[in-house]
Computed example of a mutant assay.
Amino acid sequence: MKFIHTSDWHIGRQFHNVSLLEDQRHVLNQLIEHIEREAVDAVVIAGDIYDRSVPPAAAVELLDDVLNKICAELGVPVLLIPGNHDSAERLRFASRQLRQAGLHIIGELSQINQPVKIRGASIEVCFYGIPYNDPELVRNHFGVNVSTHDEAHRYLVEQIISAKPDESPSILISHCFIDGWDESDSERPLSIGGADRINYEAFTAFDYVALGHLHSPQHKGESHIRYSGSILKYSFSEQKQRKGITLVEMAANGMKSATHLPLHPLRDMRILEGELNTLLEQGKTDPHNDDYLLVRLTDKHALLDPMGKLRQVYPNVLHIEKPGMLDMSDQAINRDKLKRGELEMFRDFFEQVHGQALLPEQDEAIKEIISQIQKLEGELA
Rank of each mutant, 00 (worst) to 15 (best):
A101I: 03
K117R: 15
E89Y: 13
C71F: 06
R119A: 13
E167M: 10
E124G: 08
S53A: 15
S170H: 00
V66N: 00
A101N: 13
E89T: 12
S174D: 02
H149G: 06
N113C: 09
P135M: 11
N145G: 13
L67H: 02
I130A: 08
A94F: 02
A59V: 05
A72M: 14
E136L: 12
I112A: 03
L91Y: 05
C176H: 13
C176R: 02
R96Q: 05
A58Y: 14
Y128T: 11
V54Q: 15
L62R: 03
R139T: 10
L156G: 04
A101H: 12
L103G: 01
R119H: 12
S122P: 07
S95L: 04
G102W: 03
S122M: 03
A57R: 15
S87Y: 03
L98C: 00
S168R: 15
V144Q: 13
I70D: 03
H104A: 01
L79K: 09
N84W: 04
L91T: 08
I112N: 00
A59R: 10
E73N: 11
K117V: 13
H149L: 02
I118W: 08
S170I: 01
N140I: 14
L103K: 01
K164G: 09
E124H: 02
V66R: 00
I81E: 01
I160Y: 05
Q159I: 06
D64C: 07
S95R: 12
L109H: 09
A59T: 05
N145P: 08
Q159F: 01
A101S: 15
S110V: 07
A152G: 02
S87L: 01
L109K: 01
L63V: 02
I173K: 00
L103Q: 06
R99K: 10
I123P: 00
V146W: 05
H104I: 08
E158Y: 01
Y132P: 11
H85A: 08
L103H: 04
V157P: 00
I178S: 12
K117Q: 14
G75S: 09
L172A: 00
G120S: 09
G107T: 10
T148M: 04
A101Y: 13
E158S: 14
L80D: 07
S174H: 00
C126M: 09
L91S: 02
H85G: 14
F127T: 06
L67F: 10
V146C: 00
D150M: 02
I161A: 13
H149K: 07
L63F: 03
E73Y: 07
N68E: 07
P131V: 04
G83H: 06
V54K: 12
Q97C: 02
I123C: 11
S170R: 05
A59E: 11
R99Y: 04
I173C: 08
N68C: 11
R92W: 04
P56N: 14
F127C: 10
L137I: 08
R99E: 12
I106V: 14
A163W: 07
V125G: 01
C126R: 04
L98T: 00
F177V: 08
S168Q: 14
V76Q: 06
I118M: 05
Y155C: 06
E158D: 13
P77Y: 10
G120F: 10
E151V: 05
S122Y: 04
S122Q: 14
S174G: 01
L62I: 03
V76A: 07
D166M: 10
P131F: 03
D134Y: 10
P165C: 13
G120Y: 08
H85Y: 04
A57M: 15
P131C: 03
